[in-house]
Write a protein that binds this DNA or RNA. Structure first.
Lengths: 205, 205
DNA sequence: TACTTTGGCTAATTTGAATTAGCCGATTTG
DNA sequence: CAAATCGGCTAATTCAAATTAGCCAAAGTA
């Protein structure tokens, strides 16, 4: 990774821990292993580093969204979630979602940064909502809708069903961001949540 | 309200909007209608203002917790939630909870401040978890547990049932904090959530 | 090979925000 | 009523952090 990327990488780490205003240009430089003035060979100023992070993340999430959509419906059908749609496949879906969001290097740092900066910056508020509210709802809504259409879950309101699936995951996620020690409890709770979700929505009406 | 309280009141507003580091002592003073140096007649320094806010909020929440516990079980029984436990009473419970957390003057500002500062400050992280994770779960868990014991809801895992009740409320709350325009949608979604919750857990097993 | 660009450095400089000094009128209190 | 004390003000002061100036060596390039 070249210096220019190392800078936004280290800056993201620091911003996610302390917030933009509490990170000094010198802190970033130190992490990168250079002196503060050298940073200015790569970025016009501190704000430009921040903007570069946003831009980079926008790219990443756009790619991710595209890759999910390209395969889209087919990928899900292909994934075998239909053939043997069981509690186990739902459990897998939830756990993967949770652990991906929680541990993915960029997701976790970027989410914390957005959490800290969201009230200061309309653009970040919108990104937060898109990434952690609207996109998951629409993607999981699509999945759960298909599973429902296939007769394996039952509801007349997929949106609420999706919130019932996702809100507890989101809730546990924010807890782990704040208190990583609770992760084992969160994982267990996740499993219990999904098993119960499956029982609640899985019965034949 | 005397100056000393006006200061922490305005400071809380500003901290909740921009975060501690982005608020200048002069901003607070201006809101209060005095000059920055005059602030120092009331507080030793900027950090002391922040600490005073924390202390004040600790008091408020302690009082609130006490008043909930004093009446405790009796209050619930008294509240008539039993006699005609209906979808309507659950709806009321959810809506009140939601609107109280969302609009209560101190709750809403303080929650935003905690959201911004949580990763910087272990004490605040703990407060956040207590106020918005642990206390609601234990209080609502108690209520729902009683309703379940009375045979009006059905589950063998009250903790998960409580998360199923509260996590969507929490989720909607964080959305409204970030995007107040979504409040009407959130309220409607709240109602749909609770009706569905009631149907899911209300059936006789 | 010589010229240019790149990316590092140290030593200023600038800026702006927190805090202190010290004055002063109003209010409280012995 | 006189002396504290309170709570405001203006004018410094301090200090830390962002940024700029300007030097230099190594790497790339005509």
């Amino acid at each position: 990774m070249d210096t220019k990327h190392r800078i936004i990488d280290e800056a993201l780490t620091l911003f996610s821990e302390k917030g933009y205003a509490n990170v000094f240009v010198g802190d970033i430089a130190e992490r990168v292993g250079i002196k503060a003035p050298s940073l200015y060979k790569h970025y016009k100023n501190k704000r430009a580093i921040f903007d570069a992070i946003i831009e980079e993340m926008n790219l990443r999430f756009a790619e991710q969204a595209k890759s999910l959509n390209i395969n889209g419906t087919d990928a899900v059908a292909d994934s075998g979630i239909y053939e043997n749609m069981s509690e186990e496949s739902l459990l897998r879906l939830g756990r993967e979602l949770f652990l991906y969001f929680l541990h993915d290097d960029y997701n976790s740092r970027f989410r914390k940064m957005l959490t800290i900066e969201q009230f200061n910056n309309k653009e970040l508020a919108d990104m937060y909502s898109k990434i952690y509210v609207d996109d998951p709802l629409s993607y999981q809504g699509m999945l759960l809708g298909m599973i429902t259409a296939a007769g394996m879950l039952h509801t007349d309101n997929v949106e609420i069903m999706t919130i019932h699936f996702y809100a507890p995951i989101y809730y546990l996620l924010t807890i782990c961001d704040r208190e990583p020690d609770r992760e084992p409890w969160a994982l267990k709770t996740m499993d219990d949540h999904i098993r119960q979700f499956n029982r609640l929505y899985g019965r034949t009406a």
